[in-house]
């Protein structure tokens, strides 16, 4: 059984990356009431920005440890450049619109992003794995682990805690919670909902971009990343219950374990394991594990 634990770490590390997408998706949904189909594109862009900056800095002979903060910097840069602009120019026109319009608009954005990535970064795959190497490995009880993977899991857990603290103990967080509860009342209480929307969206972009940046040292970047990212992110968010941060965390763990089990028992099913979990969960609980049906008042 000693190979099961490393496999589990592997699975959870992969899940941690999906969690970064899912948690932003869920956060943005709960505030803006828009499920952004283009959200996975931020993951892809974050990855591209990270390998690009990483590549430039590393080839300039910078110390290896620098590759690590660069990942965070890339995510912040992506969020700052894209978050407010995309929210103000496209997303805001869909507020309060029928879901069909929201889906079409964000899907259109996704398509545009898909080609923009190819135009800006080309179609070749990139690798920049300095961050994995610099962290090295641990030998725990005779089993070798990549420290980078352990770090990913820890970071995902830290994001859950950080979001909790941010939402309940900061000014911005409290405003976000108020807007989630009731946007109209919040507006009459003097909360600048426009700013809250922009901030929440940008946090979502940052989390997705961080996921992509953190994924790049391990798996590199290549076209098509965004599509898989959004579908996996949605699967995890939906399993947890849309709008549920802790739900997304639990769902990510379940999906990670499911993948490990799939690799162990039916390796061919590994790529579709997250979807099978999603289908199974939604069959039994159409609103996800932590989600509740909201009944229209009649």
């Amino acid at each position: 059984m000693d190979f099961l634990l490393p496999m589990l770490v592997d699975g959870l590390a992969a899940s941690a990356l999906i969690f970064f997408i899912a948690v932003g998706l869920t956060l943005v949904f709960s505030v803006l009431r828009v499920l952004n189909v283009a959200h996975g594109s931020f993951y892809a862009v974050g990855a591209y920005v990270a390998v690009t900056i990483g590549g430039v800095v590393m080839s300039a002979g910078a110390p290896q440890w620098l590759s690590f903060p660069i990942l965070f910097l890339s995510a912040a840069l992506t969020a700052a450049l894209l978050g407010p602009v995309i929210e103000r120019t496209f997303i805001r026109f869909t507020y309060g619109k029928p879901e069909a319009v929201q889906i079409l608009v964000t899907f259109a954005l996704f398509l545009i992003f898909e080609d923009l990535q190819k135009l800006v970064f080309g179609v070749q795959a990139y690798y920049q794995d300095a961050a994995v190497n610099v962290l090295g490995i641990s030998d725990i009880g005779g089993i070798i682990y990549l420290n980078y993977q352990l770090l990913l899991i820890a970071l995902a857990a830290a994001v859950v805690v950080a979001l909790r603290v941010m939402l309940h103990h900061t000014r911005l967080g409290k405003m976000i919670v108020a807007v989630v509860a009731d946007p109209e009342v919040s507006a009459t209480l003097g909360i600048d909902t426009r700013r809250v929307y922009m901030a929440a969206f940008t946090i979502g972009v940052f989390l997705a971009a961080l996921g992509g940046a953190l994924a790049s040292p391990n798996s590199g970047v290549a076209p098509g990343l965004g599509a898989e990212a959004i579908v996996l992110g949605f699967a995890v968010a939906a399993i947890g219950g849309l709008g549920q941060i802790e739900g997304a965390a639990l769902a990510a763990v379940i999906v990670g374990i499911a993948r490990v089990l799939a690799i162990y028992y039916v390796p061919q099913l590994e790529p579709v394991a997250p979807y099978l979990v999603m289908l199974a969960v939604l069959l039994v609980r159409p609103y996800g594990l932590f989600g509740a049906a909201t009944q229209r008042k009649i």
């Binding site: 026109f93 899907f107 398509l111 545009i112 898909e114 080609d115």
Partner: peptide, 16 residues
Amino acid sequence: DAWNIIIGAGLLVVIF
């Protein structure tokens, strides 16, 4: 290389 951009932009134009 801009096929998806054309589709996406087309969608946006039609919707709005």
